[in-house]
Design a protein around this nucleic acid. Structure first.
Length: 691
DNA sequence: TTTCGGCGACTTTTT
DNA sequence: GTCGCCGAAA
């Protein structure tokens, strides 16, 4: 099969570009992944580039696996020499290979966010800093932000007591990391970056090796990732960056679309290739998406089009309450299913996870199968983390985090008091060293002997056996057997043994396994059977597509989210989020909102999202509830001319929603206006118009 | 030491 | 409405 067959002219242009850096602006549904994989296949097969000279970076492990699989399906070439993976995965690989040059221990451990947070807490406590004034979560964020800017503690400018304390925390945190031989996610990137920037021989080696670097989802790169790419790319390296600034929805965690403009400049991109033909959605859906995103400023500029013009109009339903919104959605899903639409082709999207409850409830009571994305992942589960902590402590005694996690789990009578005394007596040494000094007859002494005997039992054994041993000897399994809802946890522990077995072929099974656990937390919980409605946040829907999409909760304050207004470019990111949501739909798109909604335990009245009015009216069909005539007013408390939650228009203040009423025809109403805020108005003079 | 109850928070999330 | 954390009682 020819690599280029079935591609359009622009796609072919991108795939067959000569050896120079290029920026591909790839719209939603424009065949982005296909172009990326075809490009790699093309380079190998037609240009005779060795897989050894190719590096491909993605953001998720899933994307990396998918890419690998698709290339393998395209060309019969062994891809083993190719570097393909996530930024973190590749940096890990680099640091493992050159740990000495990076001044890391050979078996350095990777901390996930939770591990990192607990270390920050420990450090703050040890420094005797007030954790109300310096919340651990914020300090964690601070540290990561510093690392992403490439700033080490000694480079922080201290000009007041706050920055001084932040500096001290960051400093102590870094020391603790070094003592334990642990690196966090940001550190993986920064270390790898520093390694290349300081070590000219290594830098030249890799720059010479990788003739081609390809980057997926380029709009999601942060500044450090961009700098890393720049460092890795040599004179002869062609960087192929694929992204879509309109789909940048992760600015809140450091993604910087500015990298796209920097890239054009720094890599001397002569011409940006735009992939604008969309193969996913019909015309009305695309027109809606285009019209919406035009409200954003500073875009690189791109307009999706399709040969599949027209199609059904978008449907908008405004429900009186969130529950009725959910009921409407369920009824529509039922009807669609009866028409033959597969449930798994239907997605129910929402802005925040809290919204899923009402929807789940409605689906559950109508016994429609559904699947919610967003639970805990396998390696994040408590029992799994505990089991891994035993392995970590067995393997590296200096791992204070691991020791603290398990010294009293399962409970063995070592309380906070005792732990504190260990921490006190440790000084500069590890907690394990301090624990070893405690009286052998004490509970701590027992614990030390337990770990030592586990260590002996494990020496020279296979990884699967080690995991098994850890679970059994530690008493974890016995503990969960006694717990009333422990079956699932035991199952997970057994699954952990299975997972470990896959690593026994590796050179250093335990280290690889632990890295894997940190770098790839595993799939989100899978939920119910195969043909099920898909429930997820708009964020997790990115990259997916569905026959039918429901976007629910389209209300001011919810979507766009109220908190987004405080941030500089907050509203624009919300709009991109809406853009992503719209472009997930292939054939049918439903938009819904509710006039009243239960949120945080109290009823809220919201006006419809501004995004609805940013979509041309002629693309939207307003639909009423099937049973609207019979509906009982749900939140009407008193007899007033205006129902609470009703949308109104005022000549001066514009659109608003009724919050409260007092008195009758001559009384007052409280209205929240979209622009003018909350006001009490006398009904006699207000001249409100229902909308 | 463990357990239970009260209190506050509460967008989005990968590695 | 629900989860997680902290402090007080068993």
């Amino acid at each position: 099969m020819d690599i280029l067959s079935g591609l359009n002219a622009r796609q072919i242009e991108a795939v067959t570009l000569p050896h120079r850096s290029a920026l591909i602006l790839a719209g939603a549904g424009s065949g982005k992944t296909r172009v990326l994989t075809s490009r790699i296949a093309y380079l190998i097969q037609k240009e005779g580039i060795s897989p050894h000279a190719i590096l491909a970076v993605t953001f998720t492990n899933k994307a990396a696996r998918e890419m690998n699989a698709r290339i393998s399906a395209m060309i019969p070439v062994n891809l083993r020499g190719m570097w393909i993976g996530t930024f973190h995965g590749l940096c890990n690989r680099l640091l493992r290979a050159h740990h000495r040059d990076a001044s890391l221990p050979e078996t350095f451990q990777i901390m996930d966010s939770a591990d990192q947070l607990s270390m920050v807490k420990r450090v703050i406590k040890a420094l005797n800093v007030n954790d109300e004034k310096y919340p651990p979560k914020q300090m964690q964020h601070f540290i990561n932000a510093q690392k992403e800017e490439g700033i080490r503690p000694h480079e922080i400018s201290v000009f007041d007591s706050v920055t001084r304390t932040q500096f001290e925390i960051y400093s102590a945190y870094e020391e603790q990391c070094n003592r334990e031989g642990a690196v966090d996610f940001a550190e993986l990137l920064l270390r790898a970056y520093e390694l290349l920037s300081r070590n000219e021989i290594l830098r030249r080696h890799y720059q010479g090796r990788f003739a081609h670097i390809l980057i997926d989802e380029f709009q999601d790169t942060n500044r450090l990732q961009y700098k890393w790419i720049r460092m890795l790319a040599g004179e002869g390296t062609a960087v192929f960056a694929v992204g879509d600034d309109d789909q940048s929805i992760y600015a809140f965690r450091g993604a910087d679309t500015g990298n796209m403009r920097s890239f054009e400049r720094d890599f001397h991109v002569e011409e940006v290739i735009k992939l604008e033909q969309n193969y996913r959605s019909h015309g009305n859906i695309l027109d809606a998406a285009n019209a919406l995103i035009r409200h954003n400023s500073g875009r690189l500029g791109k307009n999706l089009w399709t040969s599949d013009a027209g199609g059904e109009k978008l449907r908008y339903y405004q429900a009186p309450t969130d529950q009725l919104e959910a009921d409407y959605i369920v009824e529509e899903i039922r009807a669609l299913h009866a028409e033959g639409v597969e449930l798994s082709g239907i997605a129910l999207l929402y802005r925040s996870n809290a919204q899923s409850r009402v929807l789940e409830h409605a689906l559950f009571s109508s016994s429609l199968p559904y699947r919610v994305y967003g639970g805990l992942r396998f390696f994040e589960r408590l029992e799994v983390k505990h089991a891994l902590a035993y392995l970590r402590l067995i393997h590296s005694p200096d791992d204070d985090g691991a020791l603290l996690r398990i010294i009293n789990f399962p409970a063995r009578g070592i309380g906070a008091r005792t732990v504190e005394s260990i921490q006190f007596s440790a000084g500069d040494r590890s907690l394990w060293a301090a624990a070893c000094d405690m009286k052998p007859s004490s509970k701590v002494g027992e614990f030390v002997r337990l770990i030592q005997s586990m260590r002996e039992a494990c020496s020279g054994a296979s990884l699967a056996f080690m995991v098994e041993t850890a679970i059994e000897m530690s008493g974890l399994k016995a503990h969960y057997r006694l717990e009333k809802d422990g079956e699932d946890r035991i199952e997970n522990l057994e699954e952990l043994v299975n997972a470990a077995a896959a690593f026994d072929q590796e050179e250093n099974p335990l280290v690889e396994f632990l890295s894997h656990a940190a770098l790839e937390a595993g799939e989100r919980q899978s939920g119910e059977g195969s043909d099920a409605v898909q429930l997820m946040t708009v964020h997790s829907a990115k990259g997916l597509e569905f026959h039918t999409v429901f976007i629910s909760g389209l209300e001011e304050g919810l979507f766009p989210h109220g908190n987004s207004m405080n941030e500089a470019k907050g509203l624009e990111e919300e709009r991109r989020l809406m853009y992503v949501a719209i472009t997930r739909a292939r054939r049918k798109l439903y938009l819904t909102s509710a006039q009243s909604r239960m949120l945080h335990g109290q009823v809220n009245y919201n006006i419809p999202s501004r995004f609805l009015s940013e979509i041309p009216e002629e693309l939207i069909q307003h639909v009423g509830a099937p049973l609207e005539a019979e509906q009982k007013p749900v939140h009407a408390e008193r007899k007033t001319p205006w129902k609470i939650g009703a949308n109104v228009f005022h000549a001066k203040f514009g659109e608003g929603v009724i919050l409260a009423c007092e008195g009758g025809e001559t009384g007052q109403v409280q209205i929240r206006f979209r622009r003018a805020g909350v006001k009490w108005l006398a009904l006699e003079y207000a001249n409100l118009i229902a909308i």
